[in-house]
């Protein structure tokens, strides 16, 4: 989440921004791909999440239940929630549109297993291009929509909700890519899996929420004005933690195997 807040958006947002002609997102895409390659290197070296086991069916309902509770709060008790008043997150569709759109996209995403990490991973390492074709079609549709409705503007300076700091756009999403490979899917995919009853992903999504709180509380989140002073510090800490977890996992798996 720290990486995504430095870039301003998750990999899915990166694609949406790219489809509007935002070239800062292209820099982010290169960073993301670099992060995925680094993560694959760790997997090839023996990083493993280990075996997952099927748990009780009721465990799978916990995360969707939290979502339904939040929806009830949004519709009936909006006073207990805080809303963004400015910037990227303050723009939203009416609740009913969001709900129907979300269910449609969620359903399609679940069936197609679409994932921004998997597309890079499969294309580069397994020479499997099915998902790449899916993303190609998606991008064509998005660019076409933006062209028709006049949202398309190619460049770096003109993009809304973006900063032009190339290094941090690159590094921010590189961190997201690296971590996403290790946890087996991009943030969007984690959300879809959590909704389908995967408890590992539910924990990941809760972690993402905590990350968002940390990013906003400690002024790590970038804005159109650029990255904050705290962002580099947070980035270094997050990267060190991610690499340390990967190394610890690889080393302990090696020990386990040699036993």
């Amino acid at each position: 989440m720290i990486g995504a807040f430095i870039f301003i958006g998750c990999p899915t947002t990166m694609l949406l921004r790219l489809a509007r002609g935002d070239l800062n997102a292209l820099v982010g895409l290169f960073g993301f791909a670099g992060g995925v390659v680094a993560g694959m290197f760790a997997l090839n070296k023996g990083f493993s999440l280990g075996r997952a086991y099927t748990t009780k069916k009721s465990d799978g309902f916990v995360f969707p239940a939290i979502g339904i509770l939040l929806l009830v709060a949004l519709v009936f008790f909006p006073a207990i929630l805080n809303f963004s008043e400015q910037g990227f997150a303050s723009f939203h569709a009416p609740i009913i549109v969001s709900l129907i759109g979300g269910m449609l996209v969620g359903g399609i995403a679940f069936v197609s297993r679409i994932c921004t990490v998997a597309v890079i991973r499969d294309s580069i390492f397994f020479k499997s291009f099915g998902m790449l074709a899916m993303f190609g079609v998606l991008m064509l549709v998005l660019v076409g929509y933006n062209l028709i409705f006049g949202h398309f503007s190619l460049g770096m300076e003109s993009a809304p909700f973006a900063h032009t700091d190339g290094i941090w756009n690159f590094l921010g999403l590189a961190l997201v890519g690296f971590v996403s490979v290790l946890i087996g899917g991009c943030p969007f995919r984690q959300l879809v899996l959590a909704g389908s009853g995967n408890s590992d992903s539910a924990i990941t999504v809760i972690g993402m929420m905590v990350g968002a709180v940390v990013a906003h509380n400690f002024s790590i989140a970038s804005s159109g004005a650029g990255v904050t002073d705290n962002a580099p510090i947070a980035f270094v800490i997050a990267t060190v933690v991610a690499v340390a977890i990967a190394l610890y996992n690889i080393i302990s798996n090696k020990k386990e195997r040699s036993k």
Binding site: L43, S48, L49, G50, R51, A52, Y53, F126
Partner: peptide
């Protein structure tokens, strides 16, 4: 079994 993608593939 029980291992999530892409680990089985690797």
């Amino acid at each position: 079994r029980g291992i999530s993608c892409p680990e089985p593939l690797i």
